[in-house]
């Protein structure tokens, strides 16, 4: 457990247990969280990204739940804005495949070794990632001043 805990930051002042991990250790921590019988987080409830534009980085969050024990955990990780590459967790929780496709579609997060990283909601020929804070569109009238 001590080897696992290096680099993992426990977040205080949140209303549910939350830990922040380095992006390169995400896969290892996620596999342990699912496979350890004392933890047994077998359900990925939600996954998406937050654009912290001023800090020039994205925050990825994974809401986990254990149907065996009934406890929950939030896993977060930061990735830099200019190279938003993280390993996919879709081999650990298969439901993450489409949630990661959504995060790619709207935020442009790139998931390493994702089986099918295509757009989910927007057209295939869409340019840009619309939920980024610096996204601009000719139809957005308030930016035409």
């Amino acid at each position: 457990m001590t080897a696992l805990a290096s680099g993992i930051e426990r977040r205080e002042k949140v209303n549910r247990p939350a830990v922040r991990v380095p992006a390169e250790r995400l896969l290892e921590v996620a596999a342990r969280l699912r496979d350890d019988p004392a933890l047994a987080f077998d359900m990925l409830v939600d996954h998406a990204a937050i654009d912290w534009h001023a800090e020039n980085r994205f925050e990825l969050f994974y809401h986990l739940f254990s149907t065996a024990h009934g406890h929950a955990l939030t896993l977060t990780a930061f990735v830099p804005r200019d190279a938003p590459v993280v390993p996919t967790v879709s081999r650990i929780w298969p439901v993450a495949e489409w949630q990661e496709r959504e995060a790619y579609d709207l935020m442009g997060i790139l998931y390493d070794e994702h089986p099918d990283l295509r757009r989910l909601f927007l057209e295939d020929d869409w340019q840009g990632f619309p939920l980024r804070k610096d996204y601009r569109d000719p139809d957005m009238l308030e930016f035409q001043k």
């Binding site: 927007l122 619309p130 996204y135 569109d137 139809d139 957005m140 009238l141 308030e142």
Partner: peptide
Amino acid sequence: FMYNSYHIVR
């Protein structure tokens, strides 16, 4: 969705 929307036809 007139303003600041990327997906709705005006």
